[in-house]
Deep mutational scan, measured.
Amino acid sequence: RRRVRAILPYTKVPDTDEISFLKGDMFIVHNELEDGWMWVTNLRTDEQGLIVEDLVEEVGR
C-alpha cells in the first residue's frame, strides 16, 4: 500500500471527515479521491479520515 508522510501539521475543520495530524505523521493511503483528497489511516493515532495531498510527501516503498 502507498504510504505518505505529513510535511506540515494540520488541524481538521470541525464536523468534517478530515483528521488532524502532526508534521512527520505517517499514513497508509486507502483511496485517492477527487481534488487531491485521500482517505487514510494515521499510523500514530490509528485514526481514519480525509487529508489533502498537498500536505504530504511520498515515502519509499
Rank of each mutant, 00 (worst) to 15 (best):
R1I: 15
R1G: 10
R1E: 15
R1K: 15
R1S: 10
R2G: 07
R2C: 06
R2E: 14
R2A: 05
R2N: 10
R2S: 08
R3T: 09
R3Y: 12
R3M: 08
V4M: 11
V4I: 08
V4R: 04
V4P: 01
R5F: 05
R5N: 03
R5M: 13
A6R: 01
A6T: 02
I7P: 04
I7F: 07
I7M: 08
I7G: 03
P9L: 03
P9E: 10
P9Y: 03
P9H: 08
P9R: 06
P9Q: 10
Y10C: 04
Y10P: 04
Y10I: 04
Y10N: 06
Y10Q: 05
Y10E: 02
Y10K: 05
Y10V: 03
Y10L: 00
T11K: 09
T11D: 14
T11Y: 07
T11Q: 10
K12V: 03
K12M: 08
V13I: 13
V13S: 13
V13G: 12
V13R: 15
P14R: 09
P14D: 13
P14L: 08
P14G: 10
P14K: 13
D15E: 15
D15R: 08
T16N: 04
T16C: 05
T16M: 02
D17A: 12
D17I: 07
D17M: 11
E18G: 05
E18M: 05
I19T: 02
I19S: 01
I19E: 01
I19F: 00
S20G: 05
S20Q: 02
S20M: 00
F21C: 10
F21V: 05
F21K: 00
F21P: 01
F21N: 02
L22Q: 15
L22H: 13
L22Y: 10
L22D: 12
L22F: 09
L22N: 13
K23S: 10
K23D: 07
G24A: 05
G24V: 03
G24W: 04
D25V: 01
D25L: 02
D25W: 00
M26N: 13
M26Y: 13
F27Y: 02
I28L: 12
I28A: 11
I28W: 09
I28Q: 12
I28G: 04
V29W: 00
V29K: 05
V29F: 01
V29D: 03
H30R: 07
H30D: 09
H30Q: 12
H30M: 09
H30F: 05
N31A: 12
N31Y: 11
N31Q: 15
E32G: 06
E32A: 11
E32T: 14
E32L: 13
E32V: 13
L33G: 10
L33D: 08
L33A: 11
L33C: 11
E34H: 11
E34D: 12
D35W: 06
D35P: 09
G36P: 04
G36K: 06
W37G: 12
W37L: 13
M38S: 05
W39C: 08
W39N: 09
W39H: 08
V40R: 02
V40N: 00
V40W: 01
T41P: 00
T41I: 04
T41L: 06
N42L: 06
N42K: 04
N42Y: 00
L43G: 04
L43K: 07
L43A: 07
L43E: 13
R44G: 04
R44F: 04
R44S: 07
R44E: 05
R44D: 01
T45F: 03
T45G: 02
T45D: 03
T45C: 03
T45W: 01
T45P: 00
D46H: 14
D46V: 12
E47V: 06
E47T: 07
E47K: 07
E47D: 10
E47M: 07
E47C: 08
E47G: 04
Q48K: 14
Q48Y: 10
Q48T: 14
Q48N: 09
Q48L: 07
Q48P: 05
G49T: 03
G49Y: 01
G49Q: 00
G49N: 02
L50S: 11
I51D: 03
I51E: 01
I51G: 03
I51C: 05
I51M: 04
I51T: 03
V52H: 14
V52L: 15
V52Y: 14
V52K: 14
V52M: 15
E53M: 14
E53R: 13
E53W: 08
E53S: 14
E53G: 15
E53N: 12
E53V: 11
D54W: 08
D54P: 08
D54I: 06
D54H: 07
D54A: 15
D54C: 12
L55Y: 15
L55E: 03
L55D: 05
L55G: 06
L55S: 13
V56S: 03
V56F: 00
V56G: 02
V56C: 09
E57G: 04
E57S: 07
E57I: 07
E57C: 08
E57Y: 06
E58A: 09
E58P: 14
E58S: 11
E58V: 08
V59K: 05
V59W: 09
V59S: 09
G60A: 11
G60D: 11
G60N: 13
R61T: 15
R61I: 13
R61A: 15
R61M: 12
R61K: 15
R61V: 15
